[in-house]
Simulated assay, not measured.
Amino acid sequence: MQERPLILVTNDDGITAPGIRALISIMNKIGEVVVVAPDSPQSGMGHAITVDNVLTCNPITIDDGPQLEYTCSGTPADCVKMAISEILNKKPDLCVSGINHGSNSSINVIYSGTMSAAIEAGIEGIPAIGFSLLDFKWHADFKQCEDFVKKITLNALLNGLPEGIVLNVNIPNLKKEEIKGTKICRQAMGVWKEIFDKRKSPFGKEYYWLSGEFVNRDKGQDTDVYALENGFISIVPVQFDLTAHHMIQKLNSWEL
């Protein structure tokens, strides 16, 4: 009998979030699952790691599934580091992060704890995928994307991923029968136009609530935002080598 793949599951919404519970259920049908996820929400943490405080990582039982689970006091990137260094006795065959409550398309990939966990796995040479559903509600319906998540995961296990590449998968908030399929895309060039709501505490101290509006500056039809707006699941191959290779030759022409 062929050995089932070892799959590491994590997220940024916290270990009790419905999104990760759905992802665990899907992965249990594919392989042996170990979960290491934050003990509280860590959205927007990016690739932060804990360097000025202690970390805890403890076994936990949340449901009666066959998976092994650990809750970590750190960030999503911390969770992957802890899993690899302290919990697993071998490198997993795949790391999946999510399913995130909300979009991680376009520039959101920079801020996303979900994607940072996947990228951390990729840095360690582990094939990795970040999954997101475009529904920020806590009780979002993740059943609509189960088959798609499973199919993409199986393809990643079968075909592998090149070193230095992870996948950013975003799923539109549509019924299963309304999703038109998948599109391989590039990341749209978009930005957040921040709005700071300035307030005063009862003691007269000023404080701010951050909000904002996403602005898509990219009109291309090959982007993740375009795919999602037109009913497709977007799959963007993401690299974590941030070198602007095309700029090296030009910089070498400077009189430095």
Rank of each mutant, 00 (worst) to 15 (best):
L157Q: 12
S116H: 08
L167R: 12
H47G: 03
R4H: 05
P59R: 07
V238L: 03
P5R: 07
I184R: 08
L6D: 00
Q2T: 07
K205N: 09
D13R: 06
C79P: 01
M189W: 13
L68R: 04
V166S: 06
K137S: 10
H245F: 09
C79S: 04
I7P: 00
I184M: 11
R21Q: 10
I87M: 04
M247I: 12
S201T: 07
P127L: 09
P202A: 11
N170W: 06
G65Q: 07
K81L: 15
I195R: 15
N58K: 09
I26E: 01
N11P: 07
S234D: 06
I129Q: 00
Y226E: 01
I126E: 00
V191A: 10
L88Q: 04
N155T: 06
V33G: 02
A156F: 09
T56G: 05
T61A: 13
I126Q: 02
V149D: 00
R199H: 11
M45G: 06
A77M: 14
V238T: 02
L68A: 08
K151Q: 10
M82T: 10
L251H: 12
E146Q: 14
G125K: 15
Y226Q: 03
L167F: 05
P162M: 14
L161S: 04
G220T: 09
L228Q: 03
E229R: 14
K29N: 08
S116N: 11
A48R: 08
F142L: 01
S105M: 05
N58T: 12
R199G: 07
R217H: 13
W209S: 09
Y208L: 13
K143Q: 06
F214Y: 06
S112R: 08
K29Q: 09
G231Y: 07
A140T: 11
G44T: 11
N53M: 14
N170Y: 09
V215R: 05
V51I: 10
W192K: 04
I30C: 01
D147C: 10
N230L: 09
I7N: 00
G190Y: 05
I184A: 06
W138D: 09
W254T: 12
N28I: 06
K91N: 10
C145S: 14
V166R: 03
E213T: 15
N100A: 15
F196M: 13
Q144L: 04
L161N: 02
D52Y: 14
I126C: 02
V236T: 11
I15Y: 04
I20E: 00
A188Y: 02
S73R: 05
M115V: 15
V35I: 12
G130S: 07
Y226K: 05
A140M: 13
D141H: 13
P202Y: 09
I119W: 01
I84R: 03
K176E: 09
G130K: 00
P127Y: 08
I123L: 15
N89Y: 07
I126G: 00
V191P: 02
L55S: 08
D13L: 07
L6T: 01
K143P: 00
V9R: 01
K200N: 12
I184S: 05
M115A: 13
W192Q: 06
D39N: 10
D197H: 14
V35Y: 01
D93H: 14
Q42W: 05
W254V: 14
G46K: 08
Q144M: 08
E124M: 12
K219F: 03
E69W: 14
A244K: 13
F131N: 01
T50F: 09
K193S: 12
Q67G: 02
V33P: 00
A117F: 08
A140V: 13
K137P: 01
K219E: 03
G31E: 01
